[in-house]
């Protein structure tokens, strides 16, 4: 009705779950505000979001839903926080990959939905990723906001190769734990109530 096989109902579901996603990550990045704590953003997010994500898939079960959620979140996060087209494209790309993986299982295969969630858990890599791939850009941004070069370098010292591997491994493990808990939660509370 509204296009690409998505109904108005699906679009509203996408809007609501985008709101949950954005709000969760805004709150998380405010709570984890020091450079050290900020390294935990992806793992902590992965630990929390599986019930939301799996419920979202169960409520839509259509191609493009995850992609549009990623698009909306990327544009709004891009305008508010990152201000960088490349970062928004990375966010969107991650959502597209997650969408394709879930599509392969018809949005019904638990294993593929969980795999899709693991990919989507890297959604918020954004500005943090810039600390690895665009050090100078991150340094300029920090200094231009009124901070000393020492502070900028101290923050960038955390962005090492082993740290990147540690974050990636922790995120995947956290996503799997979260998905395991989410499956039980959805089964117990949502499937029986007829909403998932």
């Amino acid at each position: 009705m509204a296009g690409m096989g998505l109904s108005v109902r699906d679009l509203i579901t996408i809007g609501i779950f985008s709101a949950v996603y954005l709000l969760a990550y805004v709150i998380l990045s405010t709570v984890l505000f020091t450079p050290w704590l900020f390294m935990l953003l992806l793992p902590v997010g992965a630990l929390l979001m599986a019930p939301v994500y799996l419920l979202f898939i169960a409520r839509t079960q259509k191609p493009f839903a995850i992609t549009i959620l990623g698009l909306v979140a990327a544009v709004i996060a891009g305008l508010l926080v990152y201000g960088n087209v490349l970062i928004a494209l990375v966010n969107l790309g991650i959502a597209v990959v997650a969408d394709v993986i879930a599509y392969l299982g018809g949005y019904k295969s638990l294993a593929l939905n969980v795999a899709s969630y693991v990919v989507m858990s890297f959604w918020a890599i954004g500005q943090q990723g810039a600390m690895w791939v665009a050090r100078d850009w991150y340094r300029d941004l920090t200094i231009s906001s009124g901070y000393s070069a020492d502070f900028a370098d101290g923050t960038l010292d955390l962005a090492t190769g082993p740290m990147l591997v540690a974050i990636a491994v922790a995120t995947v493990v956290a996503a799997l734990i979260s998905a395991y808990g989410a499956r039980n939660m959805l089964e117990r509370h949502f499937r029986r109530a007829g909403v998932a």
Partner: peptide, 10 residues
């Protein structure tokens, strides 16, 4: 419309 509706709902 595909993008307008989710953004407004958000």
């Amino acid at each position: 419309t595909l993008a307008i509706v989710p953004v407004l709902v958000l």
